[in-house]
Design a protein around this nucleic acid. Sequence first.
DNA 1: AAATCGGGGAA
DNA 2: TTCCCAGATTT
Length: 356
Amino acid sequence: MNRHRALRRALIEWYDRNRRDLPWRRTRDPYAIWISETMLQQTRVETVIPYYEQFLRRFPTIQALADSDPDELMERWAGLGYYRRARNLRAAAVKIAHEHDGRLPEEVDELRGLPGVGRYTAGAVASIAFDRPAPIVDGNVRRVFSRLFEIREDIGSAPVVARLWEEAAELARGARPGDLNQAVMELGAVVCTPRTPRCQACPVARRCGARAAGDPEALPIKKTRKAPREVVSVAGWVARRGRWLAARRPPVGLLGGLWEMPGGDLEAGETPEEAIGRALRERLGLVVKEVRPLGSVSHQFSHRSLELHVLEAAVAEGRVRRAGYDAHRWLSRRAFGALPLSAIAQKAIGLASDPR
DNA sequence: AAATCGGGGAA
DNA sequence: TTCCCAGATTT
């Protein structure tokens, strides 16, 4: 379509002059690009950069990733969130080593067969690393397109999603599909921003439907999401002979594979003191003799609002019998702090090490 | 179509 | 505070 030809030219011209210098734009290594795209899922560029550089130093090749120790992998990922991504990356690397001769597949359909590679990531790797005319639709593309084409419907509805992928496919049909895709994302990131788009700086403002209508900031339209569930939990600071008890969460589910002070959610009508006694008994077979509150920390997940009470718990001698945790260790504070810990676990340890 | 799965930076 | 980010997967 002619409409897209003019669009492509304006976008590429703008991108060539305005693209940010990002680490993954300095390489042509498909592996590095795949890692960057995975880290960038629902995660800001600025957050990703240090993780990306450290990760590639430690795991420079697909084979290095396939051979990696899962616990060390989680250490490198700790703090980045969505920890399933790290497990999927490793599983995909193993699969690539076995089924693809150790090289990342170049076609969208094959890429999508890798764990953790969905429609977006497959299109990103195929277009950026392999120059395939594959479309991508991410949050930036949704916003830019909804304004450009003035789509005044719920951006998440099936027909609109289909429309967005069609437009993206048409766009990617030109030369330099990887740069075209990145141009739209870049535009969304630095010009066509959510609250106050900088239309004066936009290379396609003349063609923008929402701009013409005068309310680009009103798009895209999306359903209001429900409030996060409120949860109250407890974590136990449990000492034995100068070491503290750390437990590893099961690989699937929330914070899968990360370590923490053992604990659990409060049940109805329970006090934190009662809950820590029950949790340590149920999950580790420990009998709590005495409890002292150390304070509480709060943490916001996108779908959960958590208040975590941290309690020092003296336990009776006796062997740990795990249930609901994957592993446990008795560690010095220093070694505890070196484990792969979630942000909330780090807050809890800060409280335990420096009680108020 | 909705829920799950993190964390943090910007407005 | 609220929003939302170079999404994937399960229910």
